[in-house]
Structure formats: structure tokens, C-alpha cells
Design a protein around this nucleic acid. Sequence first.
DNA 1: CCTAATCGTTAGGTATGCCTAAATAATATA
DNA 2: TATATTATTTAGGCATACCTAACGATTAGG
Lengths: 147, 147
Amino acid sequence: MRKLTKEEYIETIHVLQKENGRAKTGHIAEHMGVRPPSVTQMLAKLQGEGLVEYEPYLGARLTPAGAKIARELMARHRVIANFLVILGIDREAAEKDACAMEHHMTGESAVRLKKFVEFIQTAPRDPQWVGKFLKYCETGERECGEK
Amino acid sequence: MRKLTKEEYIETIHVLQKENGRAKTGHIAEHMGVRPPSVTQMLAKLQGEGLVEYEPYLGARLTPAGAKIARELMARHRVIANFLVILGIDREAAEKDACAMEHHMTGESAVRLKKFVEFIQTAPRDPQWVGKFLKYCETGERECGEK
DNA sequence: CCTAATCGTTAGGTATGCCTAAATAATATA
DNA sequence: TATATTATTTAGGCATACCTAACGATTAGG
């Protein structure tokens, strides 16, 4: 797999913490496809930055600062994944692709995409153009009566 | 700036090559915000992978394999930037954000986004919902007559 | 309780991409 | 042509994120 970032560790810890109360080294490693020593090392680093609290042999928990970052990331993830689903990508692939993208989408673009997804999802009715778009993808043809 | 990838070097070389015939170390460095030695080093690496041909003190040119990658990247970049512009981001910011995203958007998602942009740009008329969306961004309100 | 298996950490090493400082090649100028 | 300026490369280091191998702690079974 590609090189993981601190943010991705934070996200994983966030998830495991909700399941088990504490995120243990081995679980994090398994979840992220790296070896335990890499996790130990990263936990030390994150602790140094005040993002996790880490008790050797016991596991890690996010500090409030770490939890804040996790929440922001997950929100971004949700937006991107939902967008991809709207475009017709299946849920599973969308989640995976969102993982790869979420750490590189920032600032104005992220805000706009969020609004866009919101705009579509809260539409009075499922907007017609979405259906037309999906049809266009399959057939390459626009619907006849399209205005 | 964040850490640059081989792909970004290839893109830069592609651009400079079109301007000057050869991409010189100093120009590449300036363009990418790194120091010349970093460029020399990367050129050696890219040459080793058969992506550029590099004559010390003269400059670099992409091999056919390198040029192919460059074209694909630029196409992806164009799609992403155009999409962001549709969402109402100004051109300059869109180009910048696209740079950050283009290397992490792959596979099915890239294909779908391309189709989506195409779908909008080739619409018989500028689709109405785009205007409605931009208005929604500004005011938070949907247009009255929206169906 | 004590040993065995498991889980985690420490130690040491690889790869990548960046840097500065110093040496060398190319180019422009006197 | 000789020298000064500029451009590029070489040499040596730093930081990050990963790894394997070896050691130490924890937990479970006998």
C-alpha cells in the first residue's frame, strides 16, 4: 500500500476506540496493513504532538485535539464517498477511493464539494439530472426530451 | 510545499519541454519550488526508470513512456480543475487544488468524474441546476420554483 | 505458580525526497 | 584569451515511514 500519513493513523484509532475503548498496537497494524513496530513508532510521534495518549502495552486513545482532527477527517471522507456514490460508483469502491482522496482535498474545494453533495441529497425530489447522467454513462446518449 | 512525486516532475518537464525543447535543471527547480540538487537527483532516478532522457548540463526530455504518463496526468488535472470551476471555485484556486488531488484520484472515480464533467460541459444548454446550486451556495436558499 | 504462547517494544537498517556546501562545467565579459 | 559569473553536479546529511530480528512484557493453560 501507499505511504500512510499521521491523519490516517488518527482515523484508525478513532474507529478502534469506538469499538474497544482503546486502540491497541496490533489492531491498528492489522487495520492499516503495516507491521506493529511502525505503529509503536507512530504512536510515540503522535503522542509527542499531543494528539494521542498512549500507554505502552495498553493502547492508545485520542486526546481532544486528536478527536477533533478525526471528526473533521471523517466528515470529509463522508462527503467524498457520498459524492462518488452519486456519480454511480458502488459504495465499497467509493469508500476506498475516498480514503485515498480525503487527505489531499482541502480548503475551498472541500467546502464546495460538501455543499454540492448537500444540495443534491436534500433536493425536494431526487434531481432528474442525476438519472440522466447515469444513463449517459451507460449508453453515451442523452435522453431525448432533455432540455 | 508538500513532498513532490515523480509524477509531478514528469508533468513539469512536459510543460517546460513544450516551451523550450528541453527542460533544464534550474527551470524545473524554480517551477517546483525545490533546489537544483533535488532535481538532478530525481532526473537520474527517472532516467533509470526509462521515463526521461537526460544529458548532464543540457537538460531533460521525456521518453515516449514518460510522455504518455504526462498526457494522462494532464488529462486528469483538466478534469478535476474543470469540475471545481463548475462548483464555483475560481480558476486559479481550482488549478492549484487540482494539482494536489490529481495524483490521488484513480481508477473508476477518475473515469466517472471525467464523464460527469463531460456531461455538464456538453449539455445542450448550461444546465439550470448549476445556477441553482451556485445560488444555494450563496444564500442557502433554494429557488422557489424548483421542482 | 510457572511455563508457553502471544503481543509489544527496541534496535538497527532501507528507501525516498529534500537540503546545504563545495567542486566543477559552461557561458559571458573584459 | 583569461577571468568572472552563472548553472549544474557531487558529497554528505536530515526527516519520515516503513521493515526485520531480537528482546521484554502480558496473558493463558497446565
